[in-house]
Amino acid sequence: MALVNYAKKEIQFKIVYYGPGLCGKTTNLEQIHALVPAKSKGNLTSLATSQDRTLFFDFLPLHTTVFEGWTTKFQMYTVPGQVKYNSTRKLVLRNCDGIVFCVDSQWDKMPENLESYENLKENLELQNSSLTQMPHVLQYNKRDMDNIAPNEYIDYLINNGEVRIPVIEASAFNGNGVLETLNAIAKLVSTDFQEKQNK
């Protein structure tokens, strides 16, 4: 749920990176933190276990000017990918305005990708929302690895609806595709907001 403050001329959006465990959600935020200029970002905070697995969420505030005359804040979150943390994923999804679903492109991770994607749909449904209403993009991550499935196969598994979801190929570990993904979801969320406001 975007927050529009007419007094301060400020808009806040919440964007959540979703996907199976170890697909690169936290790495995306770390790379964004490294790549975005200092004037547009706050500190990256990770609530992680001692093994560096996300326990609650990662959080990175970004600010820029998307709309003329308005400061726009993007509050970036990741969810914990491990199956057992579903309650936490529901909490982090609350009031979110856009979703990046990170796909682990390795062949043997396809069942986990599918399970996580179904889990996302279920959790959105619990909030009376759905992927058809929610701006979202797919990031096919880990394209630098050897044992990866072709894009067409991942499309066949996940991106097989009537409307094709935007796809960004990435290797978040190397920083490739990370800013492209960020720009894609930021643009989608902003356009969706604009259409609703200017109606």
Partner: peptide, 28 residues
């Protein structure tokens, strides 16, 4: 703040410029 972690109104010290972070963590 709202329960999604967005800051709505703030009054008082800037708390090390961490208002956004505090809001996110408090909601969590």
């Amino acid at each position: 703040c709202d329960r999604g972690g967005n800051i709505i109104v703030h009054s008082g010290e800037s708390v090390n410029d961490s208002v956004d972070l505090i809001s996110a963590l408090v909601a969590g």
